[in-house]
Amino acid sequence: MKIIQKSILLIIALAIFGLNYFLEDNVDGYVLRVIINCGIGMILAMSLNLINGCAGQFSLGHAGFMGVGAYASALITTVLTLSPFFKTDLGVGCAILTGGLAAAVAGYLVGLPSLRLRGDYLAIVTLGFGEIIRICFLNFEQVGGARGLPGIPRVANFFWVYLWVVVTFVALLRLLRSSYGRAILSVRENEIAAESMGINIAHYKIVAFVISSFFAGIAGGLFAHFQSFIDPNSFVFNKSVEVVIMVVIGGMGSLSGAMLGGIIVTLLPELLRAFDNYRMVIFPLILIILMLVRPRGIFGHKEIWELFRKKASS
């Protein structure tokens, strides 16, 4: 069992590596960009799913964490000219990891109010934190202020992004299938019962925020080193909303659903490009209709493969 799992993971990693060269040679630049953006969207959606779907909290500030990761990693590779090492693939990888850690610290700080607040209140506080983070970038001239930060080494390609997609997926799935994951889920299900069964609910809310922000920070770092340019406008409130929509479409609590949501929300505006300006009107309409006709998202709490299993057995 264990060996099978490990070899599957290795094969997937190799496949991504191979696919990287195939795509770079055979697919046009626009399509590849969209594919990579889908990957970043998936990481964001899976990470937010931990807070909004699994821990039952509601964060509306995910773009802020993404921004922290993007700026922190770009700071290392671009602004602070520490060593040429940070221009190499490996160096950028380290920088992105640092960005993730910085976002995790931010997640800890934002997670603290979640101990006292719930529902709409928490949503609005996380929104406030996200905006404050963005306003700080705006006023921080060392990272370009409102003009943004250009010249970030363009290192994050298909391979790096999708490697992180797999890492995020495996890490979160393993977390959820463990005692820690059950503890997080129990907080969503019933806080009072959870604490009566010995679960320190405050602790696990924070844990959810920290882990989630870490991956959001990674997504931000990848985004920065893929676009090679970031500005505070990349991390506005609407970006947070976009990630929430990804999670909601897929089904709150479903990891594979979140991945699908990430793809749909990234692809849809591209597919609706023919409608030009109207796509940004159609998009929220789809969201409203989805809430009216399928309020639990496409998969609900279930994972995609569980749907098939259920059908097979019955």
């Binding site: 005692s179 503890a183 129990s186 709490h301």
Partner: peptide, 28 residues
């Protein structure tokens, strides 16, 4: 006040968590 979206066995297993002896590294 059950954990209604979780399975029956998971409901029980939540209670073992406070004495869990593995760490996040073991999970990952």
């Amino acid at each position: 006040r059950l954990f209604s979206e979780m399975t029956v066995i998971e409901n029980v297993m939540v209670s073992y968590h406070m004495r869990v002896e593995y760490r996040y590294v073991d999970v990952l």
